[in-house]
């Protein structure tokens, strides 16, 4: 636990050097996107890796957080400092909503439901033009005092570190034990006195609220929201990051997110075929190394 957190802080300090070492906005932009996807992948892993439930709707919560910030800003003129907690909270409430069916349906049924949920959220964002701006979306003003890109990057990095510490503490606590227990054997978990329904709901709520926070951060980064950023394709990208990195391990989703954001940037030809590549990668990882990079590395070391 201690070493993980120390390593995390060290990494954050290194990241913080990006704006001064690598000149130019491009690198800072990439670093911001890495941070946002790290939060997304790590939060999805709470549900998918630790609790063993399938959710293909993480981008929906990203969208709910982003649109909450955009709509509040547009209609009430609220600032980022209100919109961030509001987006987190509203996404968490939507997470509870999606968590409810998880109490009854499991495995593939839950997976189907999450895809349906993802699509409903997208259709609402795209079609409820009066409220969401339809395909044109809503634009967002920069945050006062964080107008410069590097200042905003430090803000995003700070939120990312806080989110990761929360996840690390959660999974290292009794709550983490409970998640693993639900994943291993839900009936047994109940029989030893665990309220598994509450555990599953809370897991969904925390996971989606963190995705909502990431949504607010990304909305302020690209200065606006449009529905096409929150499709099932985005959900699939996050799933691929988690699976590639390694489910149910602290460093797994962090590694997966960093790799899959950086790879299309490094190989310029790949960007066009990103989703094809992600889909193929998802299948390949499941066949070759279902435990992901982190899981395979840990196994190597154990031997």
């Amino acid at each position: 636990m201690r070493t993980n957190l120390s390593l995390l802080l060290l990494l954050a300090i290194l990241m913080a050097l990006v704006p001064s070492v690598l000149q130019g906005g491009y690198f800072v932009n990439v670093a911001i996107v890495v941070c946002i996807y790290v939060v997304l992948a790590a939060s999805l892993d709470l549900v998918m890796g630790w609790t063993g439930m399938y959710s293909f709707a993480h981008a929906a919560f990203l969208g709910v957080g982003a649109y909450t910030a955009a709509i509040l800003g547009r209609d009430l003129g609220t600032s980022f400092w209100i919109n961030l907690p509001a987006g987190t909270l509203v996404a968490g409430l939507f997470g509870l909503l999606l968590g409810l069916p998880s109490l009854r349906a499991q495995g593939h049924f839950l997976a189907i439901m999450t895809i349906a949920f993802q699509t409903v959220v997208y259709l609402i964002l795209a079609q409820w033009t009066d409220f969401t701006g339809g395909q044109y979306g809503i634009s967002i003003d920069p945050i006062e005092g964080f107008g410069s890109l590097s200042a905003y990057f430090y803000l995003v990095l700070g939120v990312t570190v806080v989110a990761l510490i929360v996840i690390r503490l959660l999974t290292g606590s009794r709550f983490g034990d409970a998640l693993r227990a639900v994943r291993d054997d839900e009936t047994l978990a109940r029989t030893i006195g665990m309220n598994t329904n509450a555990i599953k709901l809370i897991a969904f709520a925390i996971s989606s609220s963190l995705a909502g926070a990431a949504g607010v951060l990304s909305a302020y980064h690209i200065r606006g929201v449009t529905p096409d950023d929150y499709t099932v394709m985005t959900s699939a990208s996050i799933v691929t990051m988690v699976v590639l990195g390694g489910r149910g391990r602290f460093w797994g989703p962090i590694l997966g997110a960093a790799l899959l954001v950086l790879l299309p940037e490094l190989l310029s030809g790949l960007a066009d075929y990103k989703h094809i590549f992600f889909g193929a990668l998802l299948i390949a990882v499941i066949i070759v190394a279902p435990q992901g990079l982190a899981g395979t590395l840990a196994q190597r070391r154990a031997k």
Binding site: D177, R180, A181, D184, I192
Partner: peptide
């Protein structure tokens, strides 16, 4: 039925907790 990803001790600790 035992939790398969936990050690023997963790299995007992979990029930105790």
């Amino acid at each position: 039925r035992l939790f398969s990803s936990l050690t023997v001790e963790e299995n007992v600790v979990l029930a105790l907790q």
